[in-house]
Simulated assay, not measured.
Amino acid sequence: MRILDKYILKKYLSSFILVLVLLIPIAIAIDVAEKVDKFLRHANLSVGEIIRDYYVNFVVIYGNTFMPLALFIAVIFFTSKLAGNTEIIAIHSAKISFTRFLKPYFIGATIVTVFALTMNHFVVPKSNEIFDKFNLTYIKSKKLNTNFISNINLQLGPNDYIFIKNYTVDRNIGYNFSYEIFEENKLTQKLMADNIRWIEKDSTYTLINYRKRFILKDRDSIVHGNKLDTVFNFEPKDLVNIDYMAKEMNSIELNRYINQSKERGVSNLNSYLVELHKRTSLPISSYILTFLAVSLASRKKRGGMGVNLAIGITLMFVYVFLLKIAEVLGAGADTNSFVVVWLPNIFFGALALYLYLKNAKN
């Protein structure tokens, strides 16, 4: 690696860390001002618990969120400074092309991307779990009502399905239960019950007021009773499809859950798919935002660094806005979540490519 590459890479990483370190305390200060009264309402809540369970995870979650913003501003800042000091002109005078000039930026973006991918896929989900639990316990005045779920349907295998009209999560009781078995698209068995209860110690289910119907070629056979203990190929956790859970599962668990839910016939998993795709698309944006920032700031402009920062911050707001729009649209049942989540990167990637080609020609 040349001295020039080491010089730019050092500037790249140090500027990025500096901007991130400056942004996080500001976010913490704003959050403390908003939440201090809620912390004080709980006499049993210690400062140590607030720091350990809330603000440590706050830094992990929001630091990860601010990463693209910090990177973009940092690259514009130090590249504008290089251009303002005519260092880039000297680099080009030494017969170093714009493409070759981008090499240390590419190395820096790779370091940031690998770090962000690791954080997004494995570290942040655990922080989300602890952070959300703290929020629900001490901060949010109205807790999410996730105790009652209606109209559950699952495919347990190629030919068997269950339906539950209403389900109570804390008591593990379902009402108006139905279990159907098909052979060659024809219903052969149907088990119905007024309610179904999970017996955790035995890993079994108890059916109350059950009716079991066997559909034969020439007649139907019906068996009924007050109580039936049996087993099924599902657990109560498989009935709960809550969107915020996606943020609390690491990517291996999330991918397994999505595949399992698809096999069981869950209709709309786009909110989970959006979360999974976002964990990759956001870190990859490090490359796009780096090359976009370099292309914007590598030429000396009248007005200096301030103009470049103004343009950069405006573009950053547009990028964040598009990310939020993509999350909302991607969660819709009739959309391709993968395409929608990657649209902001595609749009800004095209802009970065245009500016790169424009600079490479000169």
Results as ranks from 00 to 15, higher is better:
residue 81 K to F: 12
residue 348 F to A: 03
residue 151 N to W: 07
residue 317 F to A: 11
residue 89 I to N: 09
residue 208 I to H: 11
residue 225 G to F: 06
residue 362 N to P: 11
residue 263 E to I: 08
residue 73 I to N: 01
residue 261 S to H: 07
residue 113 T to D: 02
residue 362 N to S: 14
residue 161 Y to L: 13
residue 314 T to E: 06
residue 80 S to T: 00
residue 360 A to M: 14
residue 269 L to H: 01
residue 245 M to Y: 10
residue 349 G to T: 02
residue 350 A to K: 13
residue 175 Y to A: 08
residue 141 S to T: 14
residue 166 N to T: 07
residue 255 N to W: 12
residue 166 N to R: 12
residue 6 K to H: 11
residue 138 Y to K: 10
residue 179 Y to D: 04
residue 194 D to L: 13
residue 312 G to A: 05
residue 89 I to G: 04
residue 151 N to R: 10
residue 247 K to M: 08
residue 190 K to M: 15
residue 265 G to C: 05
residue 43 A to R: 10
residue 22 L to R: 10
residue 242 I to V: 08
residue 3 I to M: 14
residue 225 G to P: 03
residue 169 V to F: 06
residue 244 Y to C: 03
residue 123 V to Y: 12
residue 326 A to F: 03
residue 102 L to H: 03
residue 212 K to D: 13
residue 221 S to L: 09
residue 130 I to F: 07
residue 51 I to Y: 05
residue 293 A to E: 00
residue 166 N to H: 10
residue 88 I to Q: 00
residue 308 N to F: 00
residue 187 L to S: 06
residue 311 I to D: 07
residue 303 G to D: 07
residue 52 R to G: 09
residue 184 E to W: 08
residue 135 N to G: 13
residue 203 S to Q: 10
residue 48 G to A: 04
residue 73 I to G: 03
residue 216 L to D: 13
residue 113 T to Y: 03
residue 354 Y to A: 12
residue 25 P to A: 07
residue 285 S to V: 01
residue 241 N to W: 08
residue 339 V to R: 08
residue 41 R to A: 09
residue 265 G to Y: 07
residue 51 I to N: 04
residue 86 T to H: 14
residue 138 Y to C: 05
residue 209 N to V: 06
residue 346 I to C: 15
residue 157 G to R: 15
residue 240 V to H: 04
residue 93 S to E: 01
residue 257 Y to H: 14
residue 143 K to N: 14
residue 248 E to W: 07
residue 270 N to P: 02
residue 142 K to L: 12
residue 216 L to C: 09
residue 311 I to F: 09
residue 277 H to G: 07
residue 203 S to I: 06
residue 41 R to P: 04
residue 81 K to G: 11
residue 102 L to T: 06
residue 113 T to W: 01
residue 356 Y to M: 11
residue 213 R to Y: 08
residue 346 I to M: 15
residue 220 D to P: 08
residue 273 L to I: 12
residue 101 F to H: 02
residue 164 I to N: 04
residue 164 I to L: 03
residue 307 V to N: 08
residue 63 G to H: 05
residue 146 T to P: 11
residue 319 Y to T: 00
residue 182 F to K: 02
residue 31 D to A: 09
residue 224 H to T: 13
residue 257 Y to S: 13
residue 212 K to V: 04
residue 73 I to R: 00
residue 217 K to I: 09
residue 121 H to I: 06
residue 51 I to A: 06
residue 269 L to D: 06
residue 256 R to H: 11
residue 320 V to S: 12
residue 275 E to G: 05
residue 257 Y to D: 11
residue 256 R to C: 07
residue 350 A to G: 14
residue 54 Y to P: 00
residue 327 E to S: 12
